[in-house]
Every structure is written in structure tokens, then in C-alpha cells.
Design a protein around this nucleic acid. Structure first.
Length: 421
RNA sequence: GUGGGCGUAGCUCAGCUGGUGGUAGCACCGGGUUGUGGCCUCGGAGGUCGUGGGUUCAAGUCCCAUCGCUCACCCCA
């Protein structure tokens, strides 16, 4: 019996973990400048919360959730619902009119895994709650763009507005009418979608469907006055901030809570999973979850695995800069090991990355190991030196070697040694 | 849920129309340097060829089943 990660779940080993750290650090650095605050919420919530927030009829809720049916609990398939629950539960709206929050962590969806899609995946999730001005939409999108730029990734931005409960039903009806008229020519999936989720036909990948919806009614032409004005404001804001974008009137959302502004950052380098970040406005969500009335919000999620894949592709040639050890102690013999161990520990108290080998292997083997941890210095402690209370300090870069006295308590020896490194 | 591709060393992979599992590369260990890393050189260790059946004198190779991985559909970050 051999244990292994189960399908759709993945180990992140040290080399890759370095990239994850870089990604998170870059994100945190950007978020700080935009005044975002971190929150950490549980990965388990009541099933009812997700059903209510995401929508009973969505694929995510209908067939992709990891649910403990007997307990009424579910592993979160996305972050927004839990964040909104926390926002409402703790009355965050009272503390500040606009809350700027982010969270980072794992999400779970029981889909068939493929490139850029795991069953456990990670998102960086940002939410701005409590304001609806279009300038805020533009700021949020510009921030996401800045983050992706800082990571050195080339992605393109697409935006759309999907209206609100005022104007979407009318548009939906109009679209259904149009689709009915050419039902025979649509693919089987799209024929089914006419009834289940007509908006989805707009981004079908089937080429024939694609050309058929080209002259379908466009949602941006069917927005109510408020939504149209708002969307114009968002576009204007993006222009002001010099964020290039493409209007994609076929872009829709799979989660029910979205309203008005929607956007996606797309890459051509990930196969079928093109979206590395996506989000939009959700002006009715807080109220729908039992929070204060008229609390608008907007947010987005970045797919971390997808970003990591891009980062890996991009710098396939460069190897990741590993931390250099400050000192490697090569101890030859039991006495030497006994001398080095407390010394190394003292160096670590001084904040240095020091390490040693306890096995008393050949000096050659230990030097090799020193090279492997990219040690800047090696301290060679052998029997010859020990008799004289001395060691050899070798600069691994210049190959210079000097005698180093081991006289005194290891604490004092370490203090002297630290100065020489 | 539906299709396609692939399972040989820790990793990346050779292995042609069946005829003894590769001096393959990387990584690991040791020698060359009686106590000095990277480069070089020599050697070593490491495998139920995913698993179970079948065909055959003979199966990593052909057939069937099964498990696993992967890509795509669907859906989504």
C-alpha cells in the first residue's frame, strides 16, 4: 500500500514554494499601498451560506461542493461568501464606511482536474465593501493590473457590465427569444442552456454558436439608465488611470451574486483555463445574506495555481535564488561535533543561517554539502585544530582560509565569529 | 458526468517488427586529492517495467480488465 496525494490535490515542494512566497509577498506589498487589511476566515461554513450567496442553481452549488451532508457544512468553494458572513457577523460596516479586505487561502471544488484546475486550489481574494462609485471599480481593477505587472506577467483585461436586477430580466428575455429563433443551429449544450442559463450561451466555445451569438442582443446595449451611467463611469475611470482594456460583451459570470461591472484577466498561455483573475460587483449580496440594506461591494479573486504556472513558464531557465547559508560547520570526529553544535546554536541566536553535519563524514563530503547550501563560509573543525583550540575559517567564494581561535565559551566564540562573517 | 493520451530508477526519459531491463541525463553515495565544495574523471547504489489476467517456447513490447496520472468537454480562479 502506497499512499499518495488524492486526485486533484497537490503537494507544493520547496522549489515551488519559493514562487508561492514571492507571489504572496508581491500581493501583500501592493495591498498595503491600497490600504487593504487581511482577514482570515474558516474554510468550512454552513452549506446554506454558499447556496444563498452563490446561487442554488449554479454548477458550483449544484454539483461541485465538498459537503458534509450530515452536518450541513461545506468546504468553501470560493472566498466571498465567507468574507461577507464575517463582515455582517462582526458589524464591520460600523467601524468604517468602506471596508477594504483581502484574504489568501485554499478553496475546494469537486470538478474534474485539468491544467490550471485542482480540486483544492488557492485564491487571493480582494473585497471592497460599502461603496458603489465607479471610480472604486476602476481603482480595484487598476490594482489587480499593477499586481500582475509587478509579477512580470503579460495578461489582457476584459470588462463587461451584466446589469442589475432592474435590467437583466428584460435582457434575459430578449436573449432567450433570440436563441429560440435559431435553436436548431445551436450545439446541444447551448440548447439546454436556453432554459437553464441563457447568458452562458454567449461565451460558448463552439465556433458555430460563437458566430450565431455575434448578432444576439448585447447586454451593454440593454442596461438600465443607472447601470449604463455606472459602466460609463468605470470605463472613464480606467482611461484616467491608463489601464488598457477590451470590452467583451460576451463575458458572463457563473455565480449569481454578480451585478454590473465584471472583469477578467486573461492569458493565452494556460490552455483552456484562460482566466487568472476575475471578479465583479455584487451590490445585492450583503443584504441578501441578512446584512445591512444597500451595502454594495466589488471584489475579485486571483487563481494562485494559474499564476504560479505562468511564473514557472516564464522563468523556466532561471533557477530560483535559494537562501545562502552564512556558515557551514564541518566537524571531523565526535569532539569536533560536540564543539560545533553549541557554536552553531549561538550563531543562530545571532540571527545567522548556520548549519552543520553530525555524521562526521569525510571532509570532502561535508564541503560538498557546504556547497549545496551555498554557504558563504565554512568552519572546519578537525582534530589537529582542536588540539590547538583552533579551527579553519574558509571563505567559500574567495577560497581564502584563516585560522580561527576557539578559546573561550561558545557564546563568546560565536560573537567573535559573527563579526567575521 | 463524457471523450482522448500516457504509466520503465527519486526526477526527465530511451527501449525499433515480442528474444537477458539502459555505460542514458539530472540527483544521490564513494574514490582520484592519507583533511577541502563547484569543474573534470572513475566507480557504486537504486526497478514487483502501475496492478491482475490472457496469447506465446518467450511479453516492458501484443490482447483484455483494473487502478493511477494527464489533457480536453462541462464549469470556473
Amino acid at each position: 500500500m502506497k499512499f499518495q496525494t488524492i486526485n486533484g490535490f497537490k503537494d507544493i515542494l520547496p522549489d515551488e514554494a519559493a514562487l508561492w512566497q514571492r507571489l504572496e509577498q508581491t500581493a501583500r506589498s501592493i495591498f498595503r499601498r491600497f490600504g487593504l487589511q487581511e482577514v482570515r476566515v474558516p474554510i468550512v461554513e454552513s452549506t446554506e451560506l454558499f447556496a444563498r450567496a452563490i446561487g442554488e442553481a449554479t454548477d458550483v452549488v449544484e454539483k461541485e461542493m465538498y459537503t458534509f451532508a450530515d452536518k450541513g457544512l461545506t468546504l468553501r468553494p470560493e472566498a466571498t461568501a465567507g468574507l461577507m458572513r464575517a463582515y455582517i457577523e462582526h458589524g464591520l460596516h460600523v467601524q468604517q464606511p468602506v471596508q477594504r479586505l483581502f484574504t489568501i487561502g485554499p478553496m475546494f471544488r469537486h470538478e474534474r482536474p485539468q491544467k490550471g484546475r485542482q480540486r483544492q486550489f488557492h485564491q487571493i481574494d480582494v473585497e471592497l465593501i460599502g461603496a458603489s462609485e465607479p471610480g472604486l471599480d476602476a481603482e480595484l481593477i487598476a490594482m489587480a493590473q499593477l499586481l500582475l505587472d509587478d509579477l512580470g506577467l503579460k495578461v489582457s483585461l476584459e470588462i463587461n457590465s451584466i446589469g442589475c436586477p432592474q435590467c437583466r430580466p428584460a435582457f434575459r428575455q430578449k436573449l432567450v427569444q433570440h436563441l429560440h429563433d435559431q435553436q436548431e443551429q445551436l450545439c446541444a449544450d447551448c440548447r439546454r442552456r436556453i432554459n437553464t442559463n441563457p447568458l452562458r450561451t454567449l461565451d460558448c466555445k463552439n465556433s458555430q454558436c460563437r458566430s450565431l451569438v455575434q448578432d444576439a442582443p448585447s447586454i451593454v446595449d440593454n442596461l438600465c439608465q443607472d447601470c449604463a451611467t455606472h459602466f460609463a463611469g468605470v470605463r472613464c475611470g480606467l482611461d484616467t488611470l491608463a489601464v488598457p482594456y477590451q470590452l467583451n460583451r460576451f463575458m458572463v459570470r457563473g455565480l449569481d451574486y454578480y451585478t454590473r461591472t465584471t472583469f477578467e484577466f486573461i492569458t493565452a498561455d494556460l490552455g483552456a483555463q484562460a482566466a487568472v483573475a476575475a471578479g465583479g460587483r455584487y451590490d445585492g449580496l450583503v443584504e441578501q445574506l441578512g446584512g445591512p440594506k444597500n451595502t454594495p461591494g466589488i471584489g475579485f479573486a486571483l487563481g494562485m495555481e494559474r499564476l504560479i504556472l505562468l511564473l514557472e513558464q516564464q522563468q523556466a531557465e532561471q533557477d530560483i535564488a535559494r537562501d545562502r547559508a552564512d556558515l557551514f560547520a564541518a566537524a571531523l570526529g565526535d569532539k569536533a561535533v560536540a564543539t560545533c553544535a553549541p557554536l552553531v546554536h549561538e550563531l543562530r541566536k545571532h540571527g545567522l543561517y548556520a548549519t552543520m553535519d553530525y555524521s562526521s563524514r569525510s571532509l570532502k563530503a561535508q564541503m560538498k554539502q557546504a556547497g549545496r547550501v551555498k554557504a558563504r563560509f565554512a568552519l572546519i573543525v578537525g582534530e589537529q585544530e582542536l588540539d590547538k583550540q583552533e579551527a579553519v575559517l574558509r571563505n567559500m567564494d574567495t577560497q581564502e582560509q584563516t585560522a580561527f581561535s576557539l578559546h573561550g565559551a561558545s557564546k563568546d566564540v560565536a560573537a567573535r565569529l559573527t563579526k567575521m562573517l
